[in-house]
Amino acid sequence: KEILIVQPYMKHPLQNRWTLWFYKNDKNKPWQANLRLVTKFDTVEDFWALYNHIQLASRLMSGCDYAVFKDGIEPMWEDNRNKCGGRWLITLSKQQRMLELDQYWLETLLCLIGEAFDDYSNDICGAVINVRAKGDKIAIWTCDTENEEAVLHIGKTYKERLGLPMKVVIGYQAHADTATKSGLGVKNKFVV
């Protein structure tokens, strides 16, 4: 009699549980009502099952966002873990939507779930992608603008992981500044 030994397939656990949020711009409702918690995941396999299933960012309607945040952190400035923090912001041209948007967003997610920032990964809150007609944006949110060492390490590592050329400069903006920005645009607290 042949004995079949079935190797139980063990999922690979992530350091953190993450939540995927989706925001669809419906002007008739307050913005909080447009924000939906889609699902949570905490293994590599569940991440891929989700990512391979949902619509690519480049195919979302203008005005939509995806956000992936650590479980318990809401993708908004007001959240306790975000209000003293800021974001490394990648602004893309319209042409980049078809070429690089999906690639940059996936790389951002792999940085998050893979804990790519060593011990500074503790400062990571999440990431947001805004699909907009005037130019898409991707950002990684961190929890403390004053933790310069963490912010700069995260920015440098992120820029490398995205494969951005040295001459391309990315900026880190405090949410408090973004929230109160006048028309002039937001000043960068750090750049790499």
């Binding site: 690979h12 656990p13 350091q15 590599v44 891929w48 779930i113 893979g114 804990e115 060593d118």
Partner: peptide, 18 residues
């Protein structure tokens, strides 16, 4: 404490595993 880290190569290899 320890931290569970996955590099890009490993994560991409897992993309189409069963």
């Amino acid at each position: 404490g320890t931290r569970i880290i996955y590099d890009r190569k490993f994560l991409m290899e897992c993309r189409h595993s069963p």
